[in-house]
Design a protein around this nucleic acid. Structure first.
Lengths: 327, 327
DNA sequence: GCCGCTTACGCCATTCGTAAGGATC
DNA sequence: GATCCTTACGAATGGCGTAAGCGGC
C-alpha cells in the first residue's frame, strides 16, 4: 500500500469514477492510475469499484469504507507536510483564499492589512470564482479557504464555519422617488419592484435570498442588468439604468457619496458569510490568526473542534449558541 | 513522503532512538532506516531528531508533532488493510491474544468455545508471556489484544479497558488449621503469614496487590515457592509444601475437590482484569464480538469510543460509571 | 578501541509513460 | 465509431543491502 494508491482511489471519487479525468487531476498517466487501483484491490483482496466490462460504474461497500479511511490518511500526510513548514519557519508560508468580489473588495482589505503587518512573510493569494469553482479549489487543495455566502450545496464536502451576518441596501441616485418613500418609512418590496433593478448575478453574493423575497410576495422584479460585483452595479446605477440592490458592506463612505443608500434589511432575509475549509486538517498558526481576525468568535480552539467533528451535524451544533457579528 | 519513512520515525521512538535496533524491528537494514529518516527530514525541511555528532539523542519539538500524526497515519493504513480482510471475508481471520496462564486456563476456555461456534473460520492464537513481553507483542502488532491484571506501567501506550474484578482464595489441604479459623470467621492476614506460602511469581496475576496487603500490616510473608500458574501452585499445596494463595477463578469444581478453598477477598484488595489494544485502530466485527463475550459491558460502541479517545484520561472517564462483573 | 551512524556503491524491484489492444455505449 | 479502460513494453528512477568510513563515548 502506498500513499499514491490511496490518492488515486480518493481522486476517483472526486472525478466521477473516471480514470482518465483522475489521471489528469493527479498529473499522471491514465494507465498509472488504473494500475494503482488494481494493485491496491489485489493487496486488499477486495474490489473497491464496480465495473461493467471495462467501465468503472460505482463504488463497492468495501470501497466506501476504504476511501473514507484513505481520506483521513491523506489528510494526515498533508498535516505532516504542514507541520514541516510550520516548524521550519513558523512565520513564513502562504495563505490562499478563494472568495467573491464583494469580500475581496470591501471586507478583506482591512483584515489583510492588519494580517500582513503581523505576518510579513506570509504571502496572500486571493482567487475569485463561481461557488462551484471555489469549492473545487478548496477540495483539491489549490486554496486553503473559501469565503462565501451563496451556493451552500456546492460546499457539502467542506467544513463551513459561520462568520458574520450581513444585510442589503438599495442604492439610488440622489432625489430618487424611493429615497422619499424611505424617509417616511414606506419603502416596501412592492415599491421596489416597480423600478428596474441592477443586482448580483444568480449564484453570487446572496442572490438567491433576494429572489426568494420577491417570489414570496408574488412579485416579479424587473432585473435589467446583473453583475458579479458591486462596483459595476453602482456604475450602472449612476448612469440611471436602474435601482441598485447590493450588500450594505459594499457601500463606501467617500467614494459612494454621490449615491444614496437606503437600508433594505427589513425587506430581505439577512445572509450569513461562511469560511470553508477541508475538514480533518490541521491549520497553521497564521491561518488560525487570519480566521480569528475575519471572525473573532472563531477562536483556534473552536475551529479545531469544528474541523475534527466527525459529522457535519456535530459541527453545526458547535455554532448553535453563537451570536454572529452583523455587517 | 512514504509510509515506510513514517514507519521508521515511529519505530525509532519505540526503540530508544536507536537506528540499529529500529532496523531489526522493521526487518530491514540499518542504513535504510537512517536514509529514510534523513530523507523525510529533508522533505519536511526540519530535523525530527536531535543528534550529537552521529548519535541520535532526542526528539525535536517538530519530531514530536510529526510522529504523533505519523502514528495516526500508520494506524489508518492498518485499518485499511483490516477493512480489506473484513470485506474479502467477514467470517475468516485471526484473533491473536497475549495473556497469562490464569486467563488462558480458567477463564478463556468457555468464552473461546462459544466464540469458535459463532466464528468457525476465525483462528485463535493464545500467546503467553511476561507483562513486558505481552505489551511489546501488542505494540508491534504481533498480537491483537493483551488480557492482563498486573504490570500496568508496561501498558502506557495501549488502551486498557477494564473487564472484570476478581478476588483471591486460599487453598489448603483438608483439615488444615486455617480451615478451622475460616469456619469461625477468624481468618486474618496475621494467621496466614504464620504459614509458608505458595503463590504467583512477582509481576504476575495481581501479585503486587498481595505484597502490598502484607506490607501494610508490617507482615513479612514466608513465600517458599512461586509459579506463574495456579496449577503448579495447587500441586505443591497438595504435597504439603505450604498454603496456596491464588485467584478464586483458578479453583475448579471437581478437579480441585481434594483441596479446600477459603475465600480471601476480605484480606486483599480486589484486582481488575483489563483487555489492552492499540488505540486509534478499528476492530473487526469478530473482535468486537470476542470482547463483548469476555466483558459484556464492553459494547462495540463503548470500545470504539474508548479507542478513538484523544487521551488516556478521556478514555478512563468512559468507564467511571460502569460496574464491573465480579469473578 | 568499541559502538553506532553515515556515506558509497551496485543490484534489483518498481514505477512511469508511451503505444497498442479490447470492450462498451 | 467514439470513448474508455487494460495490457504490454522499455526506460528510468528509487529502494535496498553490503561494505567501508568516521565520530563519540
Amino acid at each position: 500500500m502506498t500513499l499514491q494508491q490511496l490518492r488515486c482511489i480518493v481522486a476517483m471519487v472526486r472525478n466521477n469514477l473516471n480514470v482518465s479525468e483522475t489521471a489528469v487531476a493527479l498529473h499522471t498517466s491514465q494507465p498509472g492510475v488504473s494500475r494503482h487501483i488494481r494493485q491496491l484491490e489485489d493487496e486488499l483482496g477486495v474490489a473497491l469499484f464496480e465495473r461493467s466490462g471495462r467501465q468503472v460504474t460505482a463504488i463497492t461497500a468495501a470501497g466506501h469504507d476504504v476511501i473514507r479511511v484513505a481520506e483521513s490518511v491523506l489528510a494526515g500526510a498533508e498535516d505532516i507536510r504542514s507541520l514541516g513548514r510550520q516548524h521550519s519557519d513558523p512565520h513564513a508560508g502562504e495563505l490562499r483564499l478563494a472568495t467573491t468580489h464583494t469580500q475581496a473588495r470591501y471586507v478583506l482589505p482591512g483584515i489583510v492589512r492588519a494580517f500582513t503587518d503581523r505576518w510579513p512573510r506570509v504571502d496572500i493569494h486571493i482567487h475569485q470564482g463561481t461557488p462551484a469553482q471555489m469549492a473545487r479549489m478548496v477540495e483539491s487543495g489549490e486554496v486553503d479557504f473559501v469565503i462565501a455566502t451563496e451556493g451552500e450545496h456546492h460546499y457539502d464536502a467542506l467544513a463551513m464555519l459561520p462568520c458574520s451576518r450581513w444585510h442589503r441596501a438599495i442604492v439610488v441616485p440622489p432625489g430618487h422617488a424611493l429615497e422619499k418613500l424611505a424617509a417616511i418609512g414606506s419603502l416596501t418590496l412592492e415599491a421596489l419592484a416597480a423600478y428596474p433593478i441592477v443586482t448580483y448575478v444568480f449564484g453570487f453574493t446572496g442572490r438567491s435570498r433576494l429572489d426568494r423575497a420577491f417570489h414570496a410576495r408574488a412579485l416579479v422584479p424587473d432585473v435589467v442588468l446583473t453583475a458579479t460585483d458591486a462596483d459595476v452595479i453602482k456604475t450602472y446605477v449612476r448612469t440611471g439604468l436602474g435601482v441598485g440592490l447590493i450588500a450594505r458592506m459594499a457601500i463606501e463612505a467617500g467614494a459612494d457619496d454621490d449615491l444614496v443608500a437606503l437600508d433594505a434589511s427589513h425587506l430581505f432575509e439577512s445572509s450569513v458569510t461562511h469560511i470553508g475549509m477541508r475538514p480533518r486538517r490541521a491549520l497553521r498558526p497564521f491561518m488560525h490568526d487570519f480566521i480569528e481576525r475575519f471572525a473573532p468568535h472563531l477562536t483556534p480552539a473552536l475551529v479545531d473542534a469544528a474541523l475534527s467533528a466527525p459529522t457535519p451535524e456535530k459541527r453545526a451544533r458547535l455554532f448553535d449558541e453563537i451570536a454572529l457579528p452583523e455587517r
